[in-house]
């Protein structure tokens, strides 16, 4: 059975950022005119991410800023509810990698997972 690419991609991105699901969609294409049938030069995108006035979004990443403690709370939820066990059923290698990251982070934060 063909496994949808999205399965592991989405899990990985949520785990690593807590906020971002899809990758940067903008790519350099012909045109480069804002809002006019074309995409901007890729080099401008980082600058554009900074050219935002919102409080949690003045960063050169296409996500909002999340407190590290908040991210660890989500890791704890995923670990304790068996999300990673489910992930292991569809992608054991990714589940292993995620488990290592989560366990390290949770230990640092003092969370005890039964």
């Amino acid at each position: 059975m063909r496994r949808p690419i999205a399965q592991s991609r989405i899990v990985r991105k949520i785990l690593l950022t807590g906020a971002r699901i899809t990758s940067e969609m903008l790519e350099e294409k012909a045109g480069g005119i804002p809002g006019g049938w074309g995409k901007p030069p890729t080099a401008r995108q980082e600058l554009w991410h900074q050219a935002l006035p919102a409080e949690t979004r003045s960063a050169a990443e296409p996500i909002w800023q999340i407190d590290p403690a908040t991210l660890k709370e989500m890791f704890f939820i995923w670990k304790i509810t068996g999300v990673l066990d489910q992930l292991a059923l569809v992608d054991p290698i990714l589940a292993d990698v995620c488990n290592q990251i989560l366990e390290e982070q949770l230990e640092e934060a003092g969370f005890k997972v039964d």
């Binding site: 989405i10 949520i14 807590g18 906020a19 971002r20 699901i21 919102a54 409080e55 949690t56 909002w64 800023q65 999340i66 407190d67 403690a69 908040t70 991210l71 709370e73 989500m74």
Partner: peptide, 11 residues
């Protein structure tokens, strides 16, 4: 505009 918010993870 909080920083103490995660994705809803619905996707």
């Amino acid at each position: 505009d909080p920083r103490d918010q995660t994705s809803c993870t619905a996707w």
